[in-house]
Design a protein around this nucleic acid. Structure first.
Ligand SMILES: [Mn+2]
Ligand SMILES: [Mn+2]
Ligand SMILES: [Zn+2]
Ligand SMILES: [Zn+2]
Lengths: 138, 138
DNA sequence: CAATAAATGCACTTCCATTGCACCTATTTT
DNA sequence: AAAATAGGTGCAATGGAAGTGCATTTATTG
């Protein structure tokens, strides 16, 4: 088992106090977060630093971006061994219309989607909107 | 066969010169358009008018909004008899990474998507990204 | 024709994303 | 260890898209 520091280093990300904090924040979250969420959690830090940290995480593929249709970009840590880039490894996202939270359904891979002749599929974004398990009370 | 004027009236949309022009513009387009696209097509008209016209069209369900992940909202006319609101009638959208255009694949309905217990699906957005038929040269 | 309602235009605002540049901090080189 | 370099952080400013309040114009109704 590697420490969080080791994980960052293994991904070629220099470890700084800030980065470690942000990483831990993301790791502890069960839902996708916006930049504002991170801002609120780290009021002492500058917006830009948070922005660029998440960008770096994204480039180094330890975080993936989520467009859930709210117009605000959200982020979530990749699962270990996740291959976000590979089309066959894409999971779907669920956005709750009630609590407004978005979660990764990493167990739910996106099914094979047929496209018409001549079209070449490279990437798929599938977002289901509705009521989440916490809000449905079931 | 009804005229475009009659179609608008049947949907409870007052016919104005501007609305008719915008409707015709959308009808003639084979791809989803942004507000900027409409702006460029009607430079004499005010942005707000175009914005509110499209909003009206959307409310009256002759246009549907498309979030293709580019961060810019796009719009396209609904097919006749289309029921965008009904989950079973949702079609998928294709965004070309090459020409940057987005098209409705109205023939390609979104398949049934399983969500975990407790989650209730109300709406689905499915966008496939890749190379379109025009760009793939096939 | 007067009264009313709806559509349009202008100006302004908000919100998120992004960048340039200066400064600080860590790492590497001499 | 000191100097040089690269990378990280903070501040300020920008840009784009979306949305709103209000005045004016245009259409509808009685
Ligand atoms: Mn995810
Ligand atoms: Mn469509
Ligand atoms: Zn919820
Ligand atoms: Zn194309």
């Amino acid at each position: 088992m590697q420490t969080k520091e080791q994980l960052l280093e293994s991904k070629d990300i220099r470890v700084t106090a800030m980065r470690l904090l942000i990483y831990k924040f993301l790791a502890q979250k069960q839902v996708a977060v916006t930049l504002s969420d991170i801002e609120n959690a780290f009021e002492k830090a500058d917006r830009t630093t948070l922005y660029r940290t998440v960008k770096t995480f994204e480039e180094k593929a330890i975080v993936h971006q989520i467009d859930d249709g709210t117009g605000i970009t959200k982020y979530a840590l990749c699962e270990k061994g996740c291959n976000c880039e590979i089309e066959t490894d894409l999971h779907l996202h669920f956005h709750c219309n009630n609590c407004n939270e978005t979660v990764c359904l990493t167990e739910h891979k996106i099914p094979q989607i047929k496209v018409p002749n001549g079209f070449i599929s490279e990437d798929i974004n599938l977002v289901v909107k509705g009521i989440c398990d916490k809000c449905s009370g079931q």
